[in-house]
C-alpha cells in the first residue's frame, strides 16, 4: 500500500468519525424540525417518518396563536442584547483595570471576583429574589440584566487573560504621547480584543437566551415572559403535544443558530486566542 493510499484511508477514517459525531449533534435538530411539520397522529408512528407525510404548518400557526410567542421572542432579544452589550462594556473596563492598572489590593479583589464563579446561581437565587422583591425589581427585567452586566466574573476573567498578554509597551507608548487611560482603553485595547469580545458576546447571548431559572423566579407577568419560559407553557402537566412543542422550539432556537453561524469564525478564533494567550 502506497503512502498516498494510507493517507487517503487515514483521512477517510477521520472523516467518518467526524461525520458520526456531526450526525449525533445534527440528528436531534433535524428530528425537532421534522416533528414540528407532522400532524400529532404521525409523531409516534412506527417506522418513524423522516420526511413528514403530510407536511403541515399547523403547529407553527398554533404556536404563534395559543401563546404570545412573538412577544416573548422580542423580550428575550431585548434582554439578551442588553446583557451582551452591557457585559462587554463593563467586563472589558474591569478587565483592563485588572490587567493593566496598578492599584492596591488588585490581586485580592480579582481573587474575590473569581471565587464568585464557584457559587452556583441556584444557591443565591431565593435570597436574591427576596432582596429584589424588597426594592421592587421583581417582575421587571432589571434582575435579569444588571447583576450579569455589573458582575460578570467569567467575562472579566476571559478578557483580562487576553489583555494581560498584550505587551505593556503599547500603553507606555500611548502614555508618552499623552493619552489617558480611557483613550488607551478605547483606541488600543478594545480593538485588539475584538475576537474575544465577539466570543464573549455570543456566549452571553446564548446564555441569556436559554436562561430559564432566573426569569422563572423573577418574572410573573405573561407578557414579560422570555421565550425559554414560554416554551414550557406548551406542555400540559402529564401530557405533551410534541409537534406543537417542536414547532415552538424550532422558532426559539432560530435566532441563536443564525447568530452562531454568522459569528462562527470569530467564535472559534476567539476560543483559540483565549486559550493560547490565557
Amino acid at each position: 500500500m502506497t503512502f498516498k493510499m494510507k493517507r487517503y484511508i487515514s483521512h477517510a477514517f477521520i472523516h467518518l468519525i467526524l461525520l458520526s459525531i456531526t450526525m449525533i449533534t445534527v440528528i436531534p435538530l433535524l428530528w425537532m424540525i421534522t416533528t414540528s411539520l407532522k400532524t400529532p397522529d404521525n409523531v409516534m408512528r412506527m417506522p418513524p417518518q423522516w420526511i413528514p407525510d403530510p407536511i403541515t404548518l399547523d403547529s407553527y400557526y398554533e404556536a404563534f396563536t395559543v401563546q404570545p410567542l412573538t412577544r416573548s421572542l422580542i423580550n428575550s432579544l431585548l434582554i439578551a442584547l442588553a446583557n451582551v452589550f452591557g457585559t462587554l462594556l463593563f467586563s472589558s473596563m474591569a478587565a483592563f483595570a485588572f490587567a493593566k492598572l496598578r492599584f492596591r489590593g488588585k490581586n485580592l479583589v480579582f481573587m474575590i471576583l473569581l471565587t464568585s464563579l464557584t457559587v452556583p446561581s441556584q444557591v443565591t437565587l431565593i435570597p436574591m429574589y427576596v432582596a429584589y422583591s424588597r426594592i421592587g425589581w421583581v417582575d421587571t427585567y432589571l434582575p435579569l440584566i444588571l447583576p450579569n452586566v455589573l458582575l460578570n466574573a467569567y467575562g472579566v476573567f476571559m478578557i483580562r487573560q487576553f489583555m494581560a498578554g498584550v505587551p505593556d509597551a503599547y500603553m507606555e507608548a500611548a502614555r508618552i504621547d499623552g493619552a489617558g487611560y480611557a483613550r488607551i482603553f478605547c483606541v488600543i485595547y478594545l480593538p485588539l480584543c475584538k475576537q474575544i469580545l465577539i466570543t464573549l458576546g455570543l456566549y452571553n447571548f446564548i446564555n441569556s437566551w436559554n436562561n430559564f431559572l432566573t426569569p422563572l423566579v423573577m418574572l410573573n407577568s405573561t407578557e414579560k415572559f422570555t421565550v425559554s419560559l414560554l416554551l414550557s407553557t406548551y406542555k400540559v402537566m402529564y401530557n405533551i403535544n410534541w409537534s406543537l412543542l417542536m414547532a415552538a422550539s424550532t422558532v426559539s432556537v432560530l435566532p441563536t443558530m443564525i447568530l452562531f453561524f454568522l459569528a462562527q469564525k470569530h467564535f472559534v478564533e476567539g476560543i483559540t486566542v483565549a486559550g493560547v494567550k490565557g
Binding site: A82, G86, L89, D139, Y141, S221
Partner: peptide, 25 residues
C-alpha cells in the same frame, strides 16, 4: 456605548404597572 446603556435602562425598567406579584391577563 451611550445608546446601549440607554437600551439597558429602558429594557430593565420595563414595567407595565403590574404589581410585583401580580399577573392579570
Amino acid at each position: 456605548w451611550s445608546m446601549l446603556i440607554c437600551l439597558m435602562v429602558l429594557v430593565g425598567c420595563t414595567n407595565t404597572g403590574t404589581s410585583s406579584s401580580g399577573n392579570t391577563s
